[in-house]
């Protein structure tokens, strides 16, 4: 079956909160995550498709519970571990 990110046509997500955001980021850490992503990708540590794959590979319940940039952060950490830049669990030692 398809991955959890593949939501086109899935029923049950309810009404859309159409409120407009006034700022691009809701917290400073979100900006840092975007900056880290762009820096690491520019250095060739991973490509965009690998990054998307890492987001989609999150356990479905975790994916749905995570905010947008929490997903980015989870994917970055997972890729850094896959690539051997970080030891598994190193971030939370």
């Amino acid at each position: 079956m398809a991955r959890i990110n593949d939501v086109g046509g899935t029923q049950g997500f309810g009404a859309i909160d159409t409120a407009d955001d006034t700022e691009p980021f809701h917290a400073d850490w979100e900006a840092r995550v975007v900056g880290l992503f762009n820096t690491l990708r520019a250095q060739g540590i991973f490509n965009t498709n690998e990054f998307r794959d890492a987001i989609e590979s999150m356990p479905p319940a975790e994916y749905l519970a995570a905010s947008y940039y929490e997903r980015w952060f989870t994917a970055i950490v997972a890729l850094l571990e896959t690539k051997g830049v970080l030891e598994p669990g190193e971030l939370d030692d």
Partner: peptide, 12 residues
Amino acid sequence: DPAHHTRLPRYA
């Protein structure tokens, strides 16, 4: 329904 990343959504 591949076991890897793809950009063909399931609805299509």
